[in-house]
Design a protein around this nucleic acid. Structure first.
Lengths: 242, 242
DNA sequence: TGTTAATTTTGACATATATCAAGCCGTAAG
DNA sequence: CTTACGGCTTGATATATGTCAAAATTAACA
């Protein structure tokens, strides 16, 4: 585990942030945008391995990822853990905490990250005055629900290789949206973490990756991944499911 | 598939609804409550097997279940289906539709049901005027996220019998909250539907139920279920997980 | 830079769950 | 009351994935 987090915070401007279209695709006037800027503070760098919030922490804010890569995970009473998601720049995390005013999962930085803190009470207040902002918050919450239900589909009905393919295609698509190569990227997580996310053991992940490579659909060497045939990967999903 | 739904609708009063504490546990004045009542219409009975909304339908409203039992399910491109939840009286469904203005799953009545329709735009509008209502909406959305992530944990890390035990305990607890027996109730869904929800085949569900019965933890005969030992069922979860 | 620890791959084997099949039961329709 | 059908149980067998172990590779740290 690494050093924790510097507490210095500086004001951010959503208005000039190049992630705005991902994070807050809302039409606001300059004045309205300034009010939003006023809400949000940029927190210092979260080092690789450090924890943004833990299960049990009091919920106070949502967090927009400015740069870097996070994982979220929940823990059972009996110590089992499940990675519930991998989040990248432009995505918003912390929404699990709203329902009980307490976070129900941990958010861990998988590389050095910068984040913007959005105090939730103030966001709600502002949402009442700016309907498009309110609407956007609802969309974000709902999008998370849809995302989770698709993972339920994956966990409940796909076999190992299909899960891997779906996972890689999802990453690919999210990199593409951010202007990065959809076919060549670094995995920021271990095989064990991928396995936890996909409901598989790390050895199974490794074997499935090797097999996709034998099939000439991907090239994988440690954390670097290259997709050789997107349509092939897509076709992978849905072959002889459960 | 059964007949569809009568279109006659009548005004409902949340103010006098005995499910209010479950559905809308919000402190509002009489005047405020009347405005909420004004929003909501009671739709006619949904017969067993009928469909409240389908994937692809335009999203317009949330639905509060007044009586009865629903399932929600998503379908893959390749026809695989996954039951994503079973919902009972006092619960609210349809939130998947907010993010894209289109429903992403089907909601099917598992018995004859009555539901209240809550037009979403008007709910948002009213939320801007009644902060406690706004807050409650956010909690409901977040609760759904937490619920889904717990199912991910179940699907990703538990073995068949544990999943069954967790499922039965969840039902038990929800019946208890509603004033019904937590140890004796009817299953409203088929083994196949339970299996889909838990990521198992119906035969596996059947065997796991039989085995729990052999262990004297439950009595099950067709759809009637009796829990003989709640602590025993709880202990079931966490024994030799993956 | 050298040393240690962590991660990954691969193999051999074990096991939980799926698959296939048959018969039974209970409800619904005639 | 009889029949038919969908739902359920149980058995035999197949298979995907887990488990255990060792070696190879890479990353972290002193």
């Amino acid at each position: 585990m690494h050093k924790s987090v510097p507490n210095n915070s500086l004001k951010t401007a959503c208005s000039t942030c190049n992630l705005r279209k991902l994070c807050l695709p809302v039409n606001l006037s300059n004045i309205e945008m300034a009010r939003l800027d006023d809400l949000i503070t940029r927190k210092g760098v979260y080092r690789h391995g450090s924890i943004l919030y833990r299960s049990g922490d009091k919920f106070q804010a949502l967090y927009a990822i400015r740069t870097g890569f996070f994982k979220t995970q929940i823990l059972n009473e009996d110590g089992r853990e499940q990675v519930t998601g991998f989040q990248m720049a432009g995505e918003i995390i912390g929404m699990d905490g709203i329902s009980s005013d307490t976070h129900t999962c941990d958010a861990v930085a998988l590389e050095d990250c910068e984040i913007c803190e959005i105090p939730f009470n103030r966001l709600e207040d502002l949402g009442r005055e700016l309907p498009p902002l309110q609407r956007h918050l609802h969309r974000i919450l709902s999008r998370e629900i849809v995302r989770d239900q698709n993972i339920m589909l994956l966990l409940g009905s796909m076999r190992a290789e299909e899960r891997l393919a779906a996972f890689l295609l999802n990453l690919s698509q999210r990199f593409a949206v951010r202007g990065y190569s959809p076919t060549s990227f670094q995995l920021r997580m271990t095989r064990q973490e991928i396995g936890s996310y996909l409901g598989l053991k790390l050895e199974t992940v490794s074997r499935a990756l090797s097999h996709l490579q034998e099939s000439k659909l991907i090239n994988v060497r440690n954390r670097s991944l290259e997709i050789l045939c997107l349509p092939g990967l897509q076709a992978c999903i849905g072959k002889r499911g459960r």
